[in-house]
Design a protein around this nucleic acid. Structure first.
Lengths: 342, 342
DNA sequence: CTGAAAGCGCTAACAA
DNA sequence: TTGTTAGCGCTTTCAG
C-alpha cells in the first residue's frame, strides 16, 4: 500500500490536531463520537499503524517479552516455546527469543541487551553453565531495574521471582516405580542434565524410589554425562560389566539413545531391559518400541509461565511471588511393559 | 545494580553536555581523546546502556529482525531457526519470532504488527494457507514500505525479494533413485506438504524419476494428506490393496510414521519395503532402522538467509535480488539398503 | 573540541 | 470538545 503514515501527516490530511487524532484513535472520551468516526475512517483509509518505537519510548512499555531458552532443538523447549507463543499472542504481546545455547555468557549478554528498553519482562530457563556457576547476578540486576522475570523448568532459589515448574522429584519417583512394578531389579538412571536443579531433583527422586523399594539391598546408580558419543562407549561398557534390566532417563533423547544401544546389542525391549524417560516428544511416540514417559505438559507450562508474567505486567500486582508446580502424568507405552515374573 | 541511567543523568554527573556524551560514546572524532576516556569511564561505572527504543525512534533502525515460521515443533524449522539465531547474534541483531501455525491470518497479523517500527526486515517461510490462497499482498506491502524480506524454503514467485531454497526437484529425483537402485519396483510418494512450492517440487522430482527410470511402465503415485491419524487408515488400506516396496516421504515425520505402520503390519524394512525421506532430524537418526534422508542443511540455510538479509540491511545494496539454491546431500542409512535382486 | 537545540512519533497535562 | 505544548532518550546538525 501507501508508505508508512504518521500522526502528523494524518493531522494535515484530516485538519485535526495531532493530539485530537491520538485521543480519537485510543477512544479517549474527550473526543466527540462524530470526530472519532471521521478520524478513524481516515486512519483506516491510509492504513495508519502507530509506530511501536515511539509509543514504547513514551509509555515505557514495549509489549514484547524476552524469552531466554537453553536451546531450541530439544523438543521439550520447542514445545514450551510454542505454548509461550500461543499465550503471548492472545494478549497482543510479541516475543524476542534468545537461545543461550547453555552458555552463561550468552545468557548474560542477551539479557543485558534486551533489558535496555526492548522488553517489558523475561521468561527464562537457565543455561547449564549459569546453574553450574551459580551466578545469577544478571537476573537480580534486571529485577532491581523493575523488569519482572518468570523462571520455568530450570530455576534457582537465588532469584526471587515467579516460577513455574513440574514436580521433578515426585515424577522421577513415580516413573522409577513403573520399572520396579515391571519387576526390574537393576535399574540405573542416566542424564545429560548434570547440575541443573531439574537434573538433581530427578536423580534424587529416582534414588529415593530405589532405596524405598529395595530397602537398600540395591544401591541407586546415577550416570551423568555431557557428550552423547562418548557416553555411548561408557554406557556400553557399563552394560557389559553390570546387570541392568531397567533404565530411567532424565530426558527423551538419552532414553531413545540408550534404547537403541541396547537393541543394537541384541537385547529385547522390554523383556531383557525396559526403558522410561522424561518428555512426551516426537521421538518417544515414534520409537520402536514406543517409550513410556513422564508427560511434562510442556505447552501448558509455557502458557502458564507467559500468563503469569503478563498478569504481573498488566496488574502491576505487588503480591507475593509464587512458585506454581504443574503435575505430570505417565504415559505407558511398550518400552516398559515387562511381564511380571513370579 | 543501579537503576537504569540516561544520557541526561550522565550529563549532570559528568558535567558534560548530553550531546558531547552521545558523541563520545559513539567514538565520534569531534571529541578529544581525553574527554572520551573520562566519559566512557563514567558511563561504565554507572553501567550505562543506551535505550533501544529512543535510539530506534531516531535512527529508524531497530537492530531486530522479524522471523515468521509456520511452526516450531517440526525439527526442520527448529534447525533453521537455530541457524538464523546464530548468524543474527554475530551481527548484534535480535529476532522476534512469530509462529504462523500455517494460518494466513496469523501470518498477516504478525507481519503488520512488526512492520510498524518493530523490525528492520523479515525472514519468512510461508504458511500453507498463504500458499494455497496464493495471497501475498501483505508481503508486497511490507516491501513497498521499504522493509526488505528474505524468503526461505516456502517461497513464491509473486514476491520479488531475496530467496534461499534448496533444489527440491533434484533432491527428490535423487532420493527416489536411491530406492530404484535398491531395486524397488513400486515406489509411492507421500506428503503432508500439500500445495506448498516445496511439496509440489518434490512430488514432481519424484514423478520425473519414476517416469525416467521405468519408461512409463510404472506410473508415479502421489499421496497428499493433511491429517496424520486419518492418513494412517488411508495408507494402510493402500498398502493392502497395492503392491508397494518403496516409499518416498516429503518430510521426516511422515517417513517415520509410514515406516512404523509398515513394521506394525509385519513387513521387514528394508527387505519388504524401503524408506527414504527429507530432513536429517532427530527422528531419522534415531529410528529403527535409521532412515535414509535428504540432508537439507537446515542450519546452513538459516544462516545464509539471515546473512543475506543483514547484508541488505547494512549495505543498503540496491543490487538485484538473488535466489540462492543450497545443494543437498543424501545420507544413506539402513532403511533403504535393500539387497539387489538379480 | 564542546554545547545548544531541533526533532524522531507518540502521549497527556494543561489551555482554550 | 479540541488544540497547544512539553517531553520520553537519543542522535545530529549547527553555533560557539
Amino acid at each position: 500500500m501507501s508508505k508508512k503514515i504518521t500522526l502528523k501527516e494524518l493531522a494535515i490530511i484530516s485538519k485535526f490536531s495531532v493530539s485530537t487524532i491520538s485521543k480519537a484513535l485510543s477512544d479517549n472520551n474527550e473526543i466527540s463520537t462524530i470526530t472519532k468516526k471521521k478520524i478513524k475512517a481516515i486512519a483506516r483509509k491510509h492504513n495508519y499503524k502507530p509506530n511501536a518505537m515511539a509509543r514504547g519510548l513514551k509509555s515505557k512499555k514495549t509489549k514484547t517479552i524476552g524469552v531466554i531458552i537453553p536451546n531450541i532443538l530439544t523438543h521439550y523447549f520447542a514445545k514450551v516455546l510454542s505454548g509461550i507463543e500461543q499465550e503471548v499472542t492472545k494478549s497482543g504481546y510479541n516475543i524476542i527469543t534468545c537461545i543461550s545455547n547453555e552458555s552463561h555468557k550468552k545468557e548474560v549478554k542477551s539479557i543485558e541487551l534486551l533489558a535496555s528498553g526492548s522488553v517489558d519482562g523475561f521468561l527464562i530457563s537457565l543455561s547449564k553453565e549459569s546453574q553450574k556457576k551459580n551466578d545469577y547476578s544478571h537476573l537480580n540486576d534486571v529485577i532491581e531495574n523493575g523488569l519482572p522475570i518468570v523462571m520455568f523448568d530450570r530455576t534457582s532459589n537465588e532469584v526471587v521471582c515467579d516460577k513455574v515448574i513440574i514436580n521433578d522429584f515426585e515424577s522421577a519417583y513415580n516413573i522409577t516405580e513403573v520399572l520396579i512394578d515391571a519387576s526390574c531389579k537393576n535399574i540405573i538412571y542416566i542424564s545429560p542434565l548434570g547440575d541443573t536443579n531439574v537434573g538433581t531433583e530427578r536423580a534424587n527422586g529416582y534414588s529415593k524410589a530405589i532405596e524405598d523399594k529395595f530397602n537398600n539391598s540395591t544401591k541407586p546408580v546415577v550416570l551423568n554425562f555431557t557428550d552423547y558419543s562418548k557416553f555411548s562407549i561408557e554406557l556400553e561398557e557399563y552394560l557389559e560389566k553390570n546387570v541392568v534390566d531397567g533404565i530411567v532417563s532424565s530426558n527423551e533423547l538419552s532414553g531413545i539413545f540408550a534404547m537403541n544401544l541396547a537393541i543394537s546389542k541384541g537385547l529385547k525391549v522390554p523383556d531383557d531391559i525396559a526403558f522410561v524417560a522424561f518428555t512426551d516428544g516426537i521421538l518417544s511416540r515414534n520409537s520402536n518400541p514406543p517409550l513410556t514417559i513422564v508427560n511434562q505438559n510442556e505447552t501448558e507450562l509455557g502458557r502458564l509461565a507467559a500468563a503469569t508474567l503478563i498478569k504481573r505486567l498488566e496488574k502491576k500486582s505487588d503480591n507475593q511471588f509464587t512458585t506454581q508446580i504443574l503435575n505430570t502424568s505417565i504415559i505407558h507405552r511398550k518400552s516398559s511393559k515387562k511381564n511380571i515374573l513370579i
